[in-house]
Amino acid sequence: MERRERKSQILNILAKSVRRIIQDEIPDFEGVQEIRLRTGQPVRVVMTDRERILPGEQKPHIMTKEEMRETMEYISHYSLYAYENELRQGFLTVEGGHRVGVAGKVIMEKEKVKNIQYISSVNIRVSHEVIGCADELLPYITKNRQVCHTLIISPPCCGKTTLIRDLIRQISDGNKYVKGCTVGVVDERSELGGCYLGIAQNHLGGRTDILDCCPKAEGMIMLIRSMAPQVIAVDEIGTSEDIHAIEYAMQCGCKLIASVHGLDMNEAKNRPVLGELIRRRMFERYVVLGNGSHPGEIRGIYDERGSVLCRG
C-alpha cells in the first residue's frame, strides 16, 4: 500500500476539522502508528519514536463531542447499528485494514457485551505492511522447504503482527526456503488480513484462506474441517482453549505459526498451559522479538530444546 493511499484512507474517517490539522502537521504518514482521539482531550498522534499533541502542546486541539460524532459517522458509514457485531468486540476495521478501537458506555445483555454507546475514545491503529521483513527469519524456521511449528514471543509494539503477516505471505506463495503451502489464518481481531467487507486489505499470499473476526480456538478447528490447511497462523494466543486447539491442529498434521505476548522464553515457560506445550517440545522454533530499529527485530531464535540458534 502506498503512503499516499494509506494517508487518504485515514484522513477520510476523521472529522473535517481534525483532518485539516493532521494534514497540516503530519505530511508523511510513514512513521504514524496510532491516532488517539478522546472527547475533551488533546488530539494525540503516536509516532515510531515519540508522541505528538496536535497542533502543539502550547495550543492543543481539544476533541469535541461533535467531532467525535462526525468521526464515528464516517467510520461506520452513518450506520453504527450495522457494525454492532464488530463494536461489541471493541473495534471496527476500515478500508485499508486499519483497526479503529473504541471505548464508551458498554451495554450488557445476558452477562455479555451487546454494544458500545456514547463513544468517547477512538484509537486508530494504522496498518503497515513491511514486505520482506521476515526474510532473515525464514531460514531458521524451515527444514527441507517445510515450515517448523513456530512460536513468536514478543512484548507489545515490537512488530510481531507485521512479521507474522509477511511470514504468511511468503509461506503461502513459496520461495527458496519453503514450498508454497495452503495457509489458514484465524484473524480474530482483523489485524493480519485487515479484512474490509470480507476482502483482505493486506497481502497474505495466493494460497491463504482467512476466517475474519472468528475466535481462535473455534476457527482453527473450523479451518481443519473445511479448508484442509497445511499451515495455520494465529496471532496472540492466550486462553487454554487456544492452546488445546493448537495441540489438536498439530496432531492433525498442520504446522503452526503463532504468537504470544511475553518478554522472553522464561516468561513463556511459566504460563500455566502454554508452558506445558513448551516443556513437551511441541513447538520446534521459538522467536523472541524486542524493541529495535525496524518491525520484527529479532533478539533470539531457539530450537525445541531451548538451545540458541541465532542471537540478534
Rank of each mutant, 00 (worst) to 15 (best):
P139E: 15
D303F: 09
I107Q: 08
E111A: 09
Q33W: 01
I237K: 08
C181R: 09
I26Q: 12
E70D: 06
Q117R: 12
G40Y: 02
I35T: 11
I10G: 01
V102Q: 03
R189G: 07
C254F: 07
L163W: 02
R52H: 03
L274R: 09
V130Y: 07
R279M: 13
H149D: 14
N85C: 00
P215D: 14
Q89K: 05
K112I: 13
H61E: 15
E247R: 05
G262Y: 08
I119G: 03
V147K: 04
I21D: 04
S172N: 09
M108P: 09
M108R: 12
C158H: 12
E66H: 13
G206C: 02
V46P: 04
D212T: 11
R299E: 06
P155K: 07
N270A: 09
I131P: 01
L80Q: 10
E236S: 08
L87T: 02
M282G: 10
L14H: 02
V186L: 13
S226K: 13
E191K: 05
Q117E: 15
G296R: 04
R299S: 04
G306Q: 13
Y140W: 07
V126R: 00
L14W: 00
P60A: 13
I153Y: 07
E109I: 13
R88K: 15
D242Y: 01
E66S: 08
